[in-house]
Computed example of a mutant assay.
Amino acid sequence: MEVRLLEKGEGLPMKLLLEADTSEKLVNDYCGRGSVYRATIDGELIGVYVLLPLSVETVEIKNIAVAESARGQGYGKKLIFHALAEAERLGFGKVEIGTGNSSFGQLALYQKCGFRIDSVDRDFFTRNYPEPIMENGIPCKDMIRLLYTL
């Protein structure tokens, strides 16, 4: 797997970004303020993540997605570890990531990678998304915020 920073003028891999966040408006906003990394295998796009600085000490993995054809093969974990290494290389001491209260797979993955639950942003999804989100048969309402200290 090859991971590289998206170059200026290169189009966003919007289809893949929207798999992790359904709001094109929000995706465009944080991609414009952050750094987008794309992962390929033999030239085929299989993953993406966005690093968004929050302060001089903290960066957030704002979006992370793996193409459906590449899921279940450990690429999500590899992307997270790449993002952590990149955050450390850039001089950050903390990395945040957030996911929905109904996102069981993501919550498990992030904790397996060493993230710890830090806080809950109650009603984040109902405040920021016009349509209700259902996942695993549960309304997605709250953002679970996790933290990794480098």
Results as ranks from 00 to 15, higher is better:
D42K: 11
D42H: 11
D42E: 15
G43S: 14
E44P: 04
E44V: 15
L45W: 10
I46L: 13
I46R: 04
I46Q: 08
G47P: 07
G47F: 08
G47Q: 05
G47A: 08
V48H: 05
Y49H: 10
Y49C: 06
Y49I: 11
Y49E: 04
V50P: 10
V50F: 08
V50N: 07
L51F: 03
L51A: 03
L51K: 05
L51W: 04
L52Q: 03
L52H: 04
L52M: 10
P53S: 03
P53A: 02
P53Y: 03
P53K: 02
L54R: 14
L54P: 03
L54G: 00
L54Y: 08
L54Q: 13
S55M: 10
S55H: 11
S55A: 08
S55E: 09
V56W: 14
V56P: 04
E57I: 12
E57F: 14
V59Y: 01
V59M: 01
E60N: 01
E60P: 00
E60Q: 09
I61V: 14
I61N: 03
I61L: 07
I61M: 03
K62H: 05
K62Q: 14
N63L: 05
N63K: 06
N63W: 08
N63D: 13
N63R: 08
N63C: 04
I64M: 11
I64F: 05
I64H: 03
A65R: 00
V66C: 06
A67Y: 05
E68M: 05
E68K: 07
S69C: 03
S69K: 15
S69V: 10
S69I: 04
S69G: 00
A70T: 02
A70F: 13
A70Q: 04
R71F: 01
R71V: 01
R71Q: 14
R71K: 06
G72W: 04
G72H: 05
Q73A: 09
Q73L: 15
G74F: 13
Y75A: 10
Y75Q: 12
G76K: 10
G76L: 13
K77N: 10
K78E: 15
K78M: 15
L79V: 08
L79A: 11
L79Q: 08
L79T: 13
L79S: 09
F81T: 10
H82Y: 11
A83K: 09
A83F: 07
L84P: 03
L84E: 04
A85S: 15
A85V: 00
A85F: 01
E86T: 14
E86Y: 03
E86F: 06
E86L: 07
A87L: 07
A87Y: 10
E88H: 12
E88N: 09
E88Q: 13
R89H: 12
R89D: 09
R89P: 03
L90A: 07
L90T: 02
L90K: 13
G91A: 06
G91V: 07
G91Q: 07
